[in-house]
Nucleic acid binder design. Structure first.
Lengths: 228, 228
DNA sequence: TACTAATCGGAAGCTGGTCTCCACTTACTG
DNA sequence: CAGTAAGTGGAGACCAGCTTCCGATTAGTA
């Protein structure tokens, strides 16, 4: 982007110190605001609460999507880590259950992240790489859990994003008035994953379909550009 | 409202024939548009597609909520009927499963109704009466299904709106790209309701909490007035 | 200290939606 | 076939966000 003779082109590399400080303020604020109010807060409000002008905000993050990616990057890393940890559990079924709960809890704790997990941001490379990694690891976890005979054999990895969408729906409606409701939903879902309970299920969406579904949400959101 | 010397104060009673014709056009159009595009379509578009001016639309339905209630009234009746039918099923468990599926299918078939079922419109009397009736009947159905020993004993009626919220979340994300996904979610949920699969669950929301949750969505929506 | 390029902030112009108002049209009545 | 109250439609006032632009400011540099 804005480069010239900067030592490191990385992250906040070539920015003047004050500019970098502002950038920090912006992402930090964005994190807080997105968590409280969801992804649709006006950019103006983020700027205001960060103590900078809208101009500054837009120069640094020309698109809402850019800001979202920047704001949730650490949380996305945590998300990916959670998968690795689940994979480390000696009992894959236990790992699986814990993971689903944990991921849903992450949604419950952050209105913005709730939505982020039901979307994809094709232009935010690192972000999506991390998600892809998490997904791959989750697939492995699923296989192992099936191998123990405790996870139903017809579970597919695409069921996870579906669960997240379902959870997002419950959270959207209940977060204010009945904020623990999601736990119960997750309880139902996990029990339904147990092999012992298994009855035939309708076909899952194909990976391709699910990808397009995750994409769709992004477009429905308001952002046009494509960033760098 | 607008009365003087009208024979019947009921429904479209005291309206001039052309006015009544327009009113019809409006609700009919609203039904179609809400079904395709959801509850948030601009009023202007409904007016345009109905071939009337915005003024006319607003005179008849001063609030988006009014229009919603009018548009979905028949569907709400069908919803209540579905409960009665389920209640008539000789096998309550079979009735229960069929009902949950059916209700979720109703959501899947109408973007607007998807949302309507996760909200409450306190000012639309008849509408809410019907919903309340449906809920009461459902409660009975639940009791009977539990009595057969097939429905898990810790199921509560409030779980139904929770399921609907979950379904709404999945539909919102997948309706375009993977429109059958909801069936699978419902498959999981129903299997989780079977007594045989039952493990302890987190506490459900209280009826009061759930009511407030349904209310919340209404406020979050954009409409101020309270209508007659 | 003085200079310059980077950065800032917020006013201003868009866009897209809600809702009101009123001059005009039209169905009913006698 | 008036006369009139009911009804119409759409222009326009308003509002809330988004996004751009540029004169003023400031960090870094010689």
């Amino acid at each position: 982007m804005t480069s010239k003779a900067s030592p490191s082109t990385a992250d906040g590399g070539g920015l003047r110190v004050d500019a970098e400080r502002n950038r920090q303020r912006i992402v930090t604020t964005a994190r807080a605001v997105f968590a409280e109010e969801g992804l649709e807060v006006p950019m103006e409000e983020i700027a205001r609460r960060a103590g900078v002008g809208v101009g500054t905000l837009y120069r640094r993050y020309p698109t809402r999507g850019d800001l979202i990616a920047a704001a949730f990057e650490p949380k996305m890393t945590a998300y990916a880590d959670a998968t690795r940890q689940a994979l480390a559990d000696p009992d894959p079924w236990h790992g699986f259950c814990g993971y689903v709960e944990r991921v849903c809890a992450m949604q419950a704790g952050d209105r913005g992240f709730t939505t982020v997990l039901t979307m994809t941001f094709p232009t935010a490379k690192q972000f999506e790489t991390e998600r892809a990694q998490a997904f791959a690891d989750f697939t492995t976890l699923v296989e192992r859990a099936k191998a123990t005979g405790k996870l139903r054999a017809d579970f597919v990895a695409e069921d996870l994003p579906m669960f997240q969408m379902a959870n997002a729906g419950v959270l959207a409606a209940t977060a204010d008035a009945a904020p623990d409701t999601w736990r119960r939903l997750v309880g139902y879902l996990i029990q339904a994953c147990a092999a012992q309970a298994a009855q035939p299920l309708p076909e899952p969406p194909t990976p391709r379909e699910m990808y397009r579904a995750l994409l769709r949400a992004t477009h429905h959101q308001r952002d046009r550009r494509t960033t760098t």
